[in-house]
Design a protein around this nucleic acid. Sequence first.
DNA 1: TCCATAAGAAACGCAAACGTCCACTAGAGT
DNA 2: ACTCTAGTGGACGTTTGCGTTTCTTATGGA
Lengths: 251, 251
Amino acid sequence: MPSAMTSALPNIAETSDNGAGCGAPPEIGRQRKRGAELEDAIRGACVAELAELGYGNLTIESVASRAQTGKASIYRRWPTKQQLVMDSVGCLMSGPLMRLTDLEYDDTVTTRDAILDLMVRVGAVMAGAQGDAMRSLMGESLRDEDFSGCFEGDFYDPRKQSLIRLLERGVARGEVRPEAIDEVVVEMIAGAMIHRILIRRQNPTKRDFEQMLDVFIMPAIQPGAAENAAVADKPAVADTACVAEKAETHS
Amino acid sequence: MPSAMTSALPNIAETSDNGAGCGAPPEIGRQRKRGAELEDAIRGACVAELAELGYGNLTIESVASRAQTGKASIYRRWPTKQQLVMDSVGCLMSGPLMRLTDLEYDDTVTTRDAILDLMVRVGAVMAGAQGDAMRSLMGESLRDEDFSGCFEGDFYDPRKQSLIRLLERGVARGEVRPEAIDEVVVEMIAGAMIHRILIRRQNPTKRDFEQMLDVFIMPAIQPGAAENAAVADKPAVADTACVAEKAETHS
DNA sequence: TCCATAAGAAACGCAAACGTCCACTAGAGT
DNA sequence: ACTCTAGTGGACGTTTGCGTTTCTTATGGA
C-alpha cells in the first residue's frame, strides 16, 4: 500500500474508489454494526448527506438515520457536527484522493501525458458524490479556519505537490523550462477545472483537459518559449498596488 | 447611465460601488424607512448577512434586525428567504457588476490591456463583501436550479460576453487569432481568479493577473502561434469517453 | 454459557427560528 | 389638521433539531 504506483498510464478504473467510507463493507447477517464498522457507516452516511443536502442542511439526525444508528452513537465519538464532517471528509482525502499523490510514470510517458493523466484522475473523483461533498464545504471553508485549513492543507497542497513533482520531472527530461516550477501553473490548471465544475456545473471531459493543457499550459511551460521568458522580466508598472486594498479603501 | 463608458483605462476607483443596496442613502432625521428606501436597506442587510454568515446561517430575523425593521415588513415583500436572497443578490448583479459589461476602450488600448483592465475590475468587486455574499451562495447554486440559473445567467454569462467582445475586438485589430473566440479562454481566465479566491483565499493582485495573462493566455490566443494552431487539429484519441461517465459506471 | 458494554430506539427539555397576528405609531398625501 | 396605511415591536403557536438520558438488547470476548 505505501509502495508508489509506477506505471505507464494505468487503466483509470483502478483508481476510482466507489466506497464512500474508509473500510470494509458491512457484515452480512448482523443487526447492529459495532466499532470501526459502525464508524465507517457513519462517515459514509455523512459524506452522502453532505453531497445531497449540503453542510447547512445536514443534521446529526439525518446522518444517524442514514447510517441506521442512533444519535447517541454519533455523539459518543464526535462532539459536534463540524467535527463529524471534518473527520468524514478527512477520510476522503486520505483515501481515494490521497492515492492520486502516489502516481509515478515510467520513462515512456511524456510530461504532458503525465499531467493529463493526473488531471483526468482528479477530475474523475471530483465528478462524483465525493466531489459533491467537498464542494458543499466550500462556502464554509471561506469562513471557518478549521475547514479552510482542511481544504488547503489536506486537499490543495497534496495535489499541488503532485503537479510540482511532475513539473520537476519535466525539467529533468528537458520538457519543461525551469522557471515553470511555479504555483501559478497549478492554479491555471486547477482553476479551469474548478470553474467548469462550480460555475458551469459540467464535468470536464478528457478532451477538455487536453485542450486546456495543449493550448494554454504546455506552450507556456515548455523550453524555448522566448516571449514567455521575456515576460518574467517585465518591469513592474507603477500602478501595482493590490486591487483589494484599493477597493476596501473606498468602502 | 445607459451610455457606454468609452475610455482609455479609467481610474479604477470610479467603478467601485460601495453601497450594498441599489438606491439612495437613508434620509436623515426619520425614525422609519418606507417603501423603496426600506427595501434597499433590507437588501443591503441581506447581502451583509450573507457575506458574514453564509446562506445557511442567515435568518429573516437577523436580516430584519440588521435592517432595523420588522419581520412582517420583510414577509410583506418576499415570501421566502430564498426569494429575498435571490432578489438581493440580483441587485448586486444589476448594479456594480453589471456596469462592468459596458466598458469600451479607445484605439490606444491594446487587447491585452483591455482584458487586464476587465480582470482587475471584476477582481476588485469579487474581493469585497459583495463577492463574499456571492461566494456564500456557491454551494446552494450547485443544488438549486433557481440559484444556479442566477449564477450562470446573471453572473457568468455577462462576464463571458464582455470577454468574448474583447476577443472579437482583438481579432479585428489583428491581435487575436480568430479561433480564439472560444469559451475555454474565458474559463481559463475566470478559473484562475476563482481558484485564487476560493481555494487559496487570497485576492489576486494586478501583478497576478498580468502573469496569468502574459504567460498563459496571450501567447495562446495571439496570431501566428504555430504550435497552438496545430493543436486544434490533433486527432481525437480513441480513449475520449467522458471521464465522469466512466466514474459513475463504476459506482 | 456468561458477562460487560456498545448500540438502538424512544423520550425529554430546551432553544431558536419560522410565519403570523395585533395594537400602536410614524409618515405621506390631501 | 385629518386620514389612511405602511411600519414597528412584541407576542404567539408551531416546528425542528440539538444534546442528553433511559431502558432494552445485541454483540464480542473470555
